[in-house]
Amino acid sequence: MSLKLNSNIVSGIVFLILSSAILLLIPQQISTVEASSINARTIPRLIAIVILICSLLLIIQGFFFTEKKEVNINKSVLLKEFRGIGMIFIFIGYGFIIDKLGFTISSLLLCTSCLLFYKVKNWKYYAVTCAVVFIVYFVFANALNVNLP
């Protein structure tokens, strides 16, 4: 399967939606107590308008001034994308367990998952990363006085 993709159009649409959402949410998310026309809403509104204008320019640029590149969505492209997304999911999983299992256990699990994800077979890599977890815990707890979860 091949797709004609252009980052200008895609990002233009994404930021058009985002800036519109910001503009719509401003009255609900920022209450004003100042009487002057320059208040807590001014900069967020200004920023959202600039993003909105730039998004429209990006879309116009994408449709009329930049070439759309054909990308073959084959097995290797998909595999590569899944690799990045897979790593994001490992980190999200880590975020979920760190509060419950604490820093040491969840970090040991993170290191092991990362190396397994990379299909590393050398046991020394597992030993080194696990040792680093304990060293980091020791340094933060003792030298920096940070009580890691």
Binding site: Y94, I98, L110, T129, V132, F140
Partner: peptide
Amino acid sequence: YVLLVPIIAVCSVAGAFS
């Protein structure tokens, strides 16, 4: 780099928490 990814991740998390 495969060895560095988990090490950097753990250091970043500890740093962010601090």
